[in-house]
Amino acid sequence: MRIVAEHLTYTYNERSPFEKRALDDISLTIEEGEFFGIIGHTGSGKSTFVQHLNGLIRLPSSRKHFHPKKPKRGQPAPPAPVLKVGEFDLCDRRTDFRALRRSVGMVFQYPEYQLFAETVKEDVAFGLKNFAEKKDRPRAEEIETAVREALAAVGLNAAEVGEKSPFDLSGGQKRRVAIAGVIVTRPEVLILDEPAAGLDPLGKREIMELLHELHRTWCKTIVIVSHDMDEIAENCTRVAVFKDGTVPYVATPKELFSHAEELYALGLDIPLTAKLTAALARRGIAIDCDFTTEDFLAKVLALKKGGAS
């Protein structure tokens, strides 16, 4: 499913003293099959944007009693927002939001804090039951199969952990169960807000490996919000930079991180490989790499061999 957003604007607490413009005329397209990264400071509008993608925040035109604002006299009408996720038109109030939420999975920050059921199986099954159509309730054995497969997809064995309380698991396992509870509806798009935050280094690596595995086998498109530039450089196909409710840059990590000055100006960092590449450039050594550790090492070592022969 392709995600297309055009002229998206959102204001929290509109017409109150706490009014805050969170998104300001954003346009962004995420292609099917991408492993897309979103970066930006706290309060830059990242979360507001991703909450639009499965209808947690509704566009005004998708609400029941919608009366478009009349443009002020003498001013042109602002362009109408567009938000499409695959065939779902999120501007249209006739859209089936239940079906949308089955197709667009959302994993919040620290998802393990949202576990609630008595057993792992029940917790994972909740989303499946909750998003099912009333006339088309899944049967018990269907639920059983779906839960087992979702747990297997996140690397857990249903026979081992299925009957345990989710609160008796380790931190990394809890996070996996929480992710299983989202992918159990087989979403085509999976959105994760800081999936690796708060884990130890090994846990971080395992979660990122898990996401790549899911990307290969389970969800066509993955969108991650992250503060870790190294993580973005190693994993993402493209990156959008959020800044005060706007998106000043959308680029591949390779393009983006070669413009260190612009990112520093936004108060954002660049990956270590990009810093090293810049430090080498100052010493007259040009390296053309995509800023993954693997590629950086290969390019640097290639120079050495070239010099030796």
């Binding site: 130890d200 280094p201 090994l202 090293l276 550790t293 640097v300 070592l301 050495k304």
Partner: peptide, 20 residues
Amino acid sequence: YNLTLPRIGMIVKGLNAGGM
């Protein structure tokens, strides 16, 4: 002990492994 190096340490190791 299930720990990793800081990123710069990993790059040093990678370069050493490649003969630099």
